[in-house]
Nucleic acid binder design. Structure first.
Length: 676
RNA sequence: UGGCCUAUGGUGUAACUGGCAACACGUCGGUUUUUGGUACCGAAGAGUCUAGGUUCGAGCCCUAGUGGGCCAACCA
């Protein structure tokens, strides 16, 4: 039983190493620490899945901690929304914590720092302090208040807390090193005065701790073993550790910060501030607008928690900057919904179809499968009659034989119903088709088992009986931005790239079984995509969102048909050149087993005959470390010269190339070179 | 005139820690199909940023360069 080694991402490896070292399983504890100043988005899902995923993997607790140290931006509304989103994703936190719960402890520790001479009150303007701070390339200088006495610092800090000062008059700074190469270590601010009510502590405090002073200490208080965050916090790690050193007892878990690359999605922005702007300017209806990349937006759009978790899993965890294609997200929602969504019929762009030989006034209730992917899903009845709606796109008077849908004189199947033959198309004055006539084959009813019903026809159309149809508002979404990287253009604002057609509202005609639906129900409108019931939907006025379309290989083919290959021979399926084949073969030549190597050499000889002299010469300046390639070069030279009936040494540069190989430590190179 | 991080098909992530670069998405082709969906089969596509070095052997280790990212909020 050799179980395959499941590759661990680098964070899991760190945890494994710690477990192999001084940590026990009981020491493990993680946390997800959002600031409650906005809604969570798909980028946060990565952070959530990493920490909560680790919690699930190791059976370790994960805290949900609200990093609420800035009362100016934070609100209870966001706390509630964040909790809802995390639970919806399917994660269970151990404790809900708030940084604000630690304000007293943080204050006490700050006093200790002051007493140790490691913090001081600075009373300059922020401009003056910024001046002294230097730049990334230039060291900072000490400010005039840096060496205040402990007593004075204690006094001033106590009065800051007591509310004696207005905002901006004094701040508390850590005393570290104003010339440090890491800007964050140049006496970072620990406390500022803010005369604002906090959503949890009210008016208890008028000094508030800064992120760096709060975060690591909160991790420590909660005994978080691994504090995971995104890459832009890497420079903060040094300060995180410095602050931790000031309070660490040496007897308990010393938390460590590690950083991973955040998730980026093309055609999407991922900044709370900018998403807020979309909401405030009315570009979208709210944080949960189905076009938003927020968790609540995706949820309303019809995305499932499972699909998002699978997506995050597929994306992986690493340290290099990345941009994920939204197509991957779409793949995962289709994958999930394909297995679970009941199939129904709905016509979104209707044209009337009259079955001229079907008795007027007659109706039939036909059997329809609910989900071919799930045999337990059962069947339902769908009404059929003489007058139906079909999709306008599904009829063309004359079309090529690549068109599988309804055309005059050709047969097509109506899903779950009969085979029909296209007839006359009635048009209005402007030439638009208002009505299509057809005839049906009464013997061909689906599932009847007759020969006629088993007849093979190329196309199958969805339809809905006009008299039974249920009207609904259907919202079709396109990406919010027309540019792949709306945030990444110098001199242009992301607002410049807003896609004006990101929302299209139409009226669809649905089969009557859809009359009874409730918010969140998900269906596949066959051939049209996946749709869910919006929260604004009522019995009187149904509203559906299109979550995502079906994969559509026909849509991709269509444009090609209309303008066949006029762009010149695009990429004439480049035959692999002998040179590239040799390069490929040569690559691993140096460390192949004997037998395989000899075979590869023989192959190289075969291909080398087709090389040009220039190509052979190309090998001569191969990097010394590329032993395999040099080997292949020697073999090529050998075979090439032989085929050309030349002396190898007559080829320019060959002599030096061979000589260098002869002198190499590698036996294979020596051997190959000695042949010349 | 700096520090830190990073570099593998079009995209993302692997490569069991130095031994024939794999998986997924995407793309293209085929089979099946009462969804031009699904499923299944197949193909193309990188030789691992560059230059040196260590090694029998380097995507992996070392050095230098180059490209990209982050760092100068009383934000987090």
């Amino acid at each position: 039983m050799t179980e395959a080694h499941k590759p661990l991402n680098f964070i899991e490896q760190i945890v494994e190493e710690d477990l192999a070292g001084t940590y026990t399983k009981d020491d493990l504890r993680f946390r997800f620490p959002p600031e409650p100043n906005g809604y969570l988005h798909i980028g946060h899902c990565k952070a959530i899945c990493i920490s909560f995923g680790l919690g699930e993997k190791y059976g370790a607790p994960v805290n949900l901690r609200f990093d609420d140290t800035n009362p100016a931006k934070e609100e209870q509304e966001y706390v509630d929304a964040i909790k809802e989103d995390v639970s919806w994703l399917g994660y269970k936190w151990d404790k809900v914590c708030f940084s604000s719960d630690y304000f007293q402890q943080l204050y006490d520790w700050a006093i200790t720092l002051i007493k140790d001479g490691k913090a001081y009150v600075d009373s300059q303007t922020s401009e003056a302090m910024a001046e002294q701070k230097g730049t990334p390339t230039q060291p900072g200088v000490d400010g005039p208040y840096r060496n205040r006495s402990v007593e004075e610092n204690l006094d001033l800090f106590a009065r800051m807390k007591a509310g004696e000062f207005s905002e901006g008059e004094h701040i508390l700074r850590a005393k570290i090193d104003m010339t440090h190469t890491n800007m964050l270590m140049r006496d970072p601010i620990m406390y500022r005065v803010l005369h604002k009510d906090h959503h949890r502590t009210g008016s208890d405090w008028c000094i508030y701790p800064m992120y760096d002073w709060t975060h690591g200490e909160s991790d420590y208080i909660e005994q978080i073993s691994h504090s995971l965050c995104s890459l832009e916090f890497k420079p903060h790690r040094e300060l995180y550790d410095w602050f931790l050193d000031q309070v660490y007892t040496g007897k308990d878990v010393r938390t460590k910060q590690r950083e991973f690359a955040r998730l980026n999605l093309n055609y999407t922005i991922m900044s709370k501030r900018k998403l807020l702007k979309l909401v405030e300017e009315g570009v979208v209806s709210d944080w949960d607008d189905p076009r938003m990349p927020t968790i609540s937006g995706l949820r309303r759009r019809g995305y499932t928690a499972a699909s998002i978790r699978n997506f995050i899993d597929a994306v992986g965890v690493a340290k290099r900057d990345n941009v994920i294609d939204v197509a991957l997200l779409e793949f995962h929602i289709r994958e999930d919904l394909n297995k679970t969504a009941p199939r129904v019929m709905a016509v979104l762009d209707p044209v009337k179809l009259v079955i001229t030989n079907y008795p007027e006034g007659q109706e039939e209730w036909l059997d329809a499968e609910n989900n071919p992917e799930d045999q337990t899903a059962g069947e339902r009845k769908v009404p059929f009659s003489r007058e139906l709606y079909i999709e306008r796109e599904d009829f063309k008077e004359n079309a090529g034989n690549k068109y599988f849908r309804l055309t005059t004189g050709k047969e097509v199947r109506l899903k779950n119903a009969y085979i029909i033959k296209g007839g006359e198309a009635i048009k209005d004055a402007s030439g638009t088709i208002t009505e299509i006539h057809c005839t049906y084959d009464p013997e061909s009813r689906s599932g009847s088992g007759t020969e006629a019903s088993k007849r093979n026809v190329k196309g199958t159309l969805h339809w809905v009986s006009i008299q039974h149809a249920v009207k609904a508002e259907v919202r079709l979404f396109d990406r919010l931005f027309s540019d792949e990287n709306p945030d990444g253009h110098e001199g242009k604002d992301f607002m410049d790239f807003i896609n004006p057609n990101s929302l299209q509202i139409i009226t669809g005609y649905l089969e009557p079984s859809l009359q009874e639906v409730s918010t969140g129900d998900i269906f596949q409108f066959q051939r049209m995509g996946y749709f869910n019931v919006d929260k604004e939907s009522t019995k009187k006025h149904l509203v559906f969102n299109r979550t995502v379309g079906l994969r559509d290989s026909w849509a991709k083919k269509k444009p090609k048909q209309q303008q066949p290959q006029q762009q010149g021979a695009q990429k004439p399926q480049q035959q692999a050149s002998p040179l590239s084949v040799i390069n490929k073969l040569g690559k691993k030549l140096a460390n192949l087993p004997e037998e395989k190597r000899l075979k590869t050499v023989a192959d190289i000889h075969k291909y080398a005959v087709e090389l040009t002299e220039e190509e052979v010469q190309g090998f001569f300046n191969t990097a010394a470390k590329k032993v395999g390639t040099r080997l292949a070069g020697l073999e090529s030279l050998y075979a090439f010269a032989k085929a050309q009936e030349k002396e190898p040494k007559d080829i320019e540069g060959a002599a030096a190339f061979i000589e260098k190989a002869r002198e190499d430590n590698n036996e294979l190179l020596q051997e190959a070179a000695s042949r010349f």
